[in-house]
């Protein structure tokens, strides 16, 4: 990691550009170990009813939440109103103004509802939240969310939990190029190479949950994603040769064409 390369999101300054999900891990121990291995500084959480009878143990019990920047989500919301209510509860539970707006508009694929996402984002920005909306790979919508005051936009690479990788590279790249706020690629990143690729393109960060949680060795995979994110970031900062003016078009040998000892 280069010194001084930091991601600024609202009041948070992050050295690690991997935002770590906390769902679907095989155990509380593996979750805690995976986050530690990834060196992530921001983690996502969901808000749910407390079980008032019986077992109240949580998969988060191995984590000291005070050590992380918390990014609660509004997962489960089906409307802007539900997302806003979950945001209020999240703020009251965690005393942080960060919120990942997530409003599902299509049950089968969990793809986001663009209108409700936009509305919830606008209203929560007005209430003073640092809003990171999970959105589709629609370029115009990403720009509108940035205009509405989103601290970052989080286009999905593929449907949530699918681990299908980047389904529409063209749109993801366009969003990264055009968006005036940080772009954090969220959802569907299945392998470290997916994360590396979007980081090379200039994504400000990635959010990974299932790709780590459902790996055979989640702790090892957390480490692999962290390394990939770092390599992708280094590559982006160094400037890919294929994106420089000189090398963008045509073909060229890497070795000198003059001075060959032949003829």
């Amino acid at each position: 990691m280069e010194e001084g390369d930091r991601l600024h999101l609202g009041s948070a300054t992050l050295r690690s550009r991997l935002i770590h999900g906390t769902g679907k891990f095989p155990s509380a121990e593996l979750l805690a170990q995976a986050i530690a291995a990834s060196e992530a500084e921001m983690i996502t959480l969901a808000v749910r009813r407390l079980h008032l009878d019986g077992d109240r143990r949580s998969e988060l019990e191995g984590l000291d939440l005070s050590r992380y920047h918390l990014l609660p989500n509004t997962a489960g919301a089906r409307s802007a109103e539900e997302a806003i209510r979950l945001a209020h509860l999240a703020r009251a539970a965690g005393l942080s103004d960060f919120i990942k707006v997530e409003v599902v508009g299509h049950e089968a694929t969990l793809l986001p509802d663009p209108l409700a996402t936009f509305e919830a984002t606008s209203r929560l920005v007005a209430e003073g939240y640092t809003v990171l909306p999970y959105t589709s790979d629609d370029v115009a919508l990403a720009l509108r969310l940035a205009e509405a005051g989103a601290a970052a936009v989080m286009p999905g690479a593929a449907p949530i939990g699918s681990t299908l990788g980047v389904l529409n590279p063209h749109n993801i790249r366009l969003i990264i190029q055009e968006c005036p706020v940080p772009v954090i690629v969220d959802a569907g990143l299945g392998s470290p190479s997916d994360a590396l690729r979007v980081m090379e393109w200039g994504a400000a960060g990635v959010l990974v949950n299932t790709g780590i949680a459902r790996a055979k060795d989640p702790v090892g995979m957390a480490r692999a994603f962290a390394a990939a994110v770092e390599v992708g970031r280094l590559a982006h900062r160094a400037g890919l040769a294929g994106e420089s003016g000189e090398a963008r078009h045509g073909y060229g040998a890497s070795s000198p064409t003059a001075g060959l000892p032949v003829g």
Binding site: G21, T22, G23, V47, R48, S58, L60, L89, G94, L207
Partner: peptide, 10 residues
């Protein structure tokens, strides 16, 4: 009354 807490999520 709703009493909620944080759980694992993405």
């Amino acid at each position: 009354l709703e009493v909620v807490h944080f759980v694992g999520g993405g």
